[in-house]
Design a protein around this nucleic acid. Structure first.
Lengths: 334, 334
DNA sequence: ATGATGTAGGCAATCGTTTGCGGCAATCGT
DNA sequence: ACGATTGCCGCAAACGATTGCCTACATCAT
């Protein structure tokens, strides 16, 4: 049993004794009720009937004519990741407010999947794409899209040659380093995240550079790359602890990895922050939940700006990348 | 600058010296290359040209004719929530494998937003809807949809009169209670989650009933409702601890709330599980990250079954609700 | 030889909108 | 008073696919 078919323009028109085109023009005039396509009286009658009959434009018919879908596609590594889920929320909210709808897909950070999902979205004629999973590994596809002139922006992570909206991750790394050193920490471990992503590399290089600046020598810091989630954090923490037991501060480039690390510290009876200080990155809800010191990155805003820039591109405007400012959030763990 | 417009059926047809209809029939035959709509030779030629010219069906044109969009809408309380993000992943994966695309929206569990988002999706002519935010508060709208004969299913949470796919939450609550009692716990706190949702009420009633069964009297358990996230967990934990300092076990109906509780326990220097045992629900990645004892609920499968049932409905089949089995995961905290 | 059955493919209507181009009055300027 | 505007609105051609109904020919059985 199907839902009742919605009224069409044609039905409205015949019921009003008008031509379809008039009704269409009045109803889709951006000025709404005071558009100038018909007499005030006619305009009122049209809106009134459309209202009572519950008219809803058929977006497919419209898109067929206009060649615009008012749909945009979003590719993220994984929606399970709080950070990208939040960025996506920012995108979706901005989109909704401008009458766009969005479709998301997970790429799991594997290039082939990224390509497949994106093409699939393109097959559905999305007007543009937003990528949350830019990395060295898929730069090739992104470049191809640029050559095909497919409007797109990058969020969260960036690569050269594509307009992106990111947090100033380098600065974020510096903030943590400065804070930790100011609190008297001297031997560092960094849980560096996924190689080949700007979020990882810039946060750690900001951290490392600031440390060097403050006179910490290289042999006092041990790096452990991996992923962005709690299990990866566990592993990295184990590695750091076994490589340098004198470590007195750990910086994880992601809150979830930090929580994983926190788990192993608790297990080993290491007190936080008394024995080892711990800092994360992003200021997720969970960071507040466990009182983790972290850096707030404006995830929601990254999403909405990413969408705004995409709309600019659709309007033919050339866009510039943006970097949003991070903020240090000091809580109990460091 | 726009991306190059894709080839159309008409162009393929004229280039092949065939009629559009023939090309259409061959290309959209479910049997693919060995459909029986044209001679094997013609069929080959059609597929070959479609391939080299990169033909992609225009879904809007198709939908206009067929009145099917191959799109389904998903409404969740909030994608930031790992549990619903995972369920959504399950939905999306199943959908993709059957050539459906999905669109998600957050309702934030507020009825008006749920309605708005759903109607918006319906305006876009989705073929059906999947709700992850069913609750007493929005039963009205759901019932209305049923009356309007809009195909839909519920996932994660359920209400009577709508086909749903959920975890057997009552059983899950029992599992935790039995485990805790077997470990010698006697004074309980339960962080009960959001009122009016089946996940909350069934998990806690399963827990409570099992406790009663095992001879625990009511005055030995204190209930603290709230939400499903870490901050809500913190608050609830504080409340439980102040209401009954003798508490020796806490069950949170959600892992995130459990992590919040874990935070306050650590803060107060309470040892887990030595002083107080703690259990969560869902077995999210984070639970593994902090070695939390929990109940695994098959979130991914809930999503894919929810989608499958929706497809059944679209096929005119009447569907029955399903309950999937939970599994106790014992780790360090209880 | 005849009608039945199959095979290969064309015709044209249709889905619901959008939009370029006019048409017809009433109004205005001079 | 008369051509030029302006205000209102209709006509019909797209947009790109799907699909019911035909046609034309070949094959087959009787």
């Amino acid at each position: 049993m199907q839902a009742a078919r919605p009224v069409t323009l044609k039905e409205l028109a015949s019921e009003l004794g008008l031509n379809i085109s008039t009704v269409s023009r009045v109803l889709s005039d951006p000025l709404g009720r005071d558009g100038k396509w018909a007499s005030p009286d006619t305009t009122q009658r049209i809106f009134a009937l459309a209202e009572t009959r519950g008219y809803r434009r058929n977006p497919y018919a419209a898109s067929l004519r206009t060649n615009r879908s008012n749909l945009i596609g979003v590719i993220v590594p994984r929606l399970q990741d709080y950070v990208l889920a939040t960025i996506y929320e920012g995108i979706d909210e901005a989109a909704l407010s401008q009458d766009y709808l969005t479709m998301v897909s997970n790429s799991l950070d594997v290039p082939q999947r990224q390509r497949d999902k994106a093409e699939r979205l393109l097959d559905h004629r999305v007007d543009g794409l937003i990528f949350g999973d830019a990395a060295e590994a898929n730069r090739g596809y992104l470049d191809e899209l640029r050559d095909r002139r497919v409007p797109h922006t990058l969020v969260s992570r960036r690569i050269a040659g594509h307009t992106s909206v990111t947090c100033d991750d380098y600065r974020g790394g510096q903030l943590i380093a400065e804070h930790l050193v100011a609190r008297g920490r001297r031997v560092f471990g960094v849980i560096a995240g996924k190689p080949g992503t700007s979020t990882s590399s810039e946060r750690t290089s900001g951290f490392l550079d600031a440390l060097a600046e403050l006179g910490i020598t290289e042999d006092q810091v041990t790096l452990a790359p991996g992923g962005f989630d709690a299990p990866a954090g566990r592993e990295a923490a184990e590695q750091i602890l076994s490589e340098n037991p004198a470590t007195d501060a750990i910086f994880a480039v992601n809150d979830f990895a930090a929580i994983g690390a926190l788990g192993v510290l608790h297990n080993r009876g290491i007190r936080v922050p008394d024995d080892i200080a711990l800092a994360g990155y992003n200021d997720t809800a969970l960071a507040a939940g466990v009182n983790l010191t972290t850096v707030r990155s404006p995830m929601h805003e990254i999403g909405s700006r990413g969408f705004a820039l995409l709309i600019d591109q659709l309007g033919g405007i050339t866009t510039e990348s943006e970097q949003l400012q991070p903020e240090l959030i000091v809580r109990d763990t460091a």
